[in-house]
Design a protein around this nucleic acid. Structure first.
Lengths: 171, 171
DNA sequence: AGGAACTTTCAATTTTATTTGAAAGTTCAG
DNA sequence: CTGAACTTTCAAATAAAATTGAAAGTTCCT
């Protein structure tokens, strides 16, 4: 396969993957494009290569910056802004985990606590089923919270290495 | 908070969460409703409680069954079908991981392999950046593949317990 | 200040995803 | 076999999300 074709396929697949994970297709595609670009690209490059409008490119680039996945790069002597993406997928994964945890898990935990304090007789089956389920989710979430915090701080070699070792040993 | 209100809030929040993860809102809401129901519900119950049409209820229930998150329950003496959801969130998480891995990671790996074999001179910066990025993603995905397989087979106590121990010790 | 180069915004439009509901299909008791 | 009870399908309608493009905003050079 030629490079151009391979790039196009990667961008399309990464975009499709994104939509399965609640990320808009264009945002994922811009991310893919920047990940495989040897040099930072300008908004015009992104617009042209993905056939999207200026407004769209601008909004999604801003969103990617907001997620910490893309950075503005200043090229001396150039008026316009350039953009480049982190290429180390471990750092990308960690950054995504960090942001999603902040946006989702951290906001969910207080809600679960509130829901677990529902009024009513615990001998009532409806109440019991509800609180049991919520508490189960809550406990699970609290454990996930700690594990993800560790992962966010961890170094790739240590983290994945430890996991692999752990899982091959079944200790 | 009263039970009815708490249930409504949980269903709404679980639905919102779902949309952030590429799962349609109604499907997540039906799942939430069944998780907090002490007894299996019929399609009519689901329709009424969530104010959705029969077709919608039917389709999303089927999808949930397809994901292995909901099961049909036969109630003796009743003509219609009832549905109940797994309430143990660890089992739910494992099932979701299993399905998403099958649908996404397992189909992505061969594509990454193909992309990593792109033609061209490796001294060409464009080619090098592309293959380096793809290989990095590929290596990461292969490790994730193994770790997720372990998780899918694992018992909650062993799995989360090991992780917690590992992360507190930093060994 | 004036204006070229570039970026941002957002109302209108387009695209995509979801939902409806009526018709067709199935099952089963009588 | 018949028809009531229930389930499934799917084309059309609706709702939600993404995209456009032109106008407004900003920056910076002269």
């Amino acid at each position: 396969m030629q490079l151009a074709e391979a790039k196009a396929k990667f961008i399309a697949d990464w975009g499709r993957l994104g939509t399965n994970w609640g990320i808009n297709r264009t945002m994922a595609q811009i991310h893919a494009l920047l990940m495989v670009s040897p040099d930072p690209l300008g908004a015009d490059d992104v617009m042209e290569q993905l056939s999207i409008s200026r407004g769209n490119a601008n909004m999604n680039l801003r969103e990617l910056i907001d997620w910490g996945l893309v950075q503005k790069v200043i090229v001396p002597g150039e008026r316009r802004e350039f953009f480049s993406a982190e290429k180390d997928i471990w750092k990308v994964a960690r950054q995504i985990v960090k942001e999603r945890k902040k946006r989702e898990l951290d906001t969910m935990l207080p809600v679960l606590k509130e829901l677990s304090e529902v009024e009513g007789d615990k001998r009532d089956r409806s109440v019991k089923t509800f609180t049991d389920t919520i508490n189960n989710i809550r406990k699970f979430s609290e454990q996930a919270d700690k594990i993800l915090d560790t992962m966010i701080k961890a170094d790739e070699h240590w983290f994945l290495g430890s996991l692999m070792k752990l899982f091959s040993g079944k200790s």
